[in-house]
Every structure is written in structure tokens, then in C-alpha cells.
Amino acid sequence: MIEFSLNGKKITSDAEADTPLLWVIRDEFGLKGTKFGCGIAMCGACTVHFNGSPVRSCSLPIGAIANAEIRTIEGLENQHPLQKAWVEHQVPQCGYCQSGQIMQAAGLLATNANPSEEEIEAYMSGNLCRCMTYARIKDAIKDVATQSDAVVQIYNPKLESEQTQGVS
């Protein structure tokens, strides 16, 4: 049995240790926003955050994530500035890769609030978009980057709720 945190909630899974995290997230816990694309960590549709860093969940066995913090697109709770920028720039077409694109971009901005064009390209080129929405993905990321002064505020529901409790 593996215990880990999924979007801030402690959970356990009985899946075999070699089961990719992707299938546990999707089929055991019903979070369908994370997608299956290639199964070999080369398209990025399955990107989630593992202790804050983007990883390919299709190739990450759950045996390797004991006690880790996993965050999926659902865990951004529609509050991440990138999600707003994605709507503003009308980025998605078919939309299938976009959860992964957003999670990857969130990983970029969390460590590099004002990436250069080249840094965006280098960081995002592991994420395939078959509709080829790349120009808009880039613009949306640049937009969020330039809106921030130094550090992008990454929404953390856990923090937020604690603060809210504190205030009330």
C-alpha cells in the first residue's frame, strides 16, 4: 500500500508498485484532467507536479512516490494565473494536451518568474500539442511572466484555506 498526498489530501492506493501514477490518478481517484498520450514520457499530456516539480505521470511508478505531494490540474482549482491567461489568449483547440501544458508552464514560472523566450521554448518543448497551439501557449506564459514583478504567485489551496481560516 502506498500513501501519498494528492492535491493536498492524504490518500492510499493498493495498486501494484509498478503501476504508473497516471492510471492511479485517473482510474482509482477519478481525476480525469491528467491525460494519457504516449506512455513513454515524450508528449507531456500526463504532466503533474511531484513535490512541486513537473513530472510525466505515465512513466512514474507509484512505488516511487511514497509520501510525496502530487498536484494535478484539478489541484490548481482554476485559480492559477496561467489558467486565466489560457482563456484570455484562447489557447486550447482540442484541449487534450492543455492540462499538461499548464502544469509544465506552472513548473517553469515557479522556478523562473520571468523566463526568456529561449527559456520558455527549452522548457516547453517536451510538451507536444498536436493542434500546434504553440504560439498562444508562449504568449500566455509571457503574459503571466510579465504581469509578475519578481515571483509568480502560485496558488496553493492549502495555504489559502489556512489563511482564510486565520482571518475568519
Binding site: R26, D27, G30, L31, K32, G33, T34, K35, F36, T72, I73, E74, L76, N78, Q83, W86, V87, Q90, V91, P92, C94, G95, Y96, Q98, S99, I102
Partner: peptide, 27 residues
């Protein structure tokens, strides 16, 4: 204008064929 299908495609709620679950289904 903004496309009506886009918001659901930025937060993981857009439902694709692969996301379908049926009661008692086998993979």
C-alpha cells in the same frame, strides 16, 4: 469572441471519450 468550449479545457473538466466511466466496466 471567446470560444465556449475553452474554459473547460484549462481546468481538466472537459470530458473526452477516454474519460468515460461506466458502471461495472472492464478495461
Amino acid at each position: 469572441s471567446q470560444a465556449l468550449d475553452i474554459p473547460a479545457k484549462t481546468n481538466g473538466t472537459a470530458e473526452y471519450g477516454i474519460d468515460v466511466e461506466l458502471e461495472n466496466m472492464v478495461y
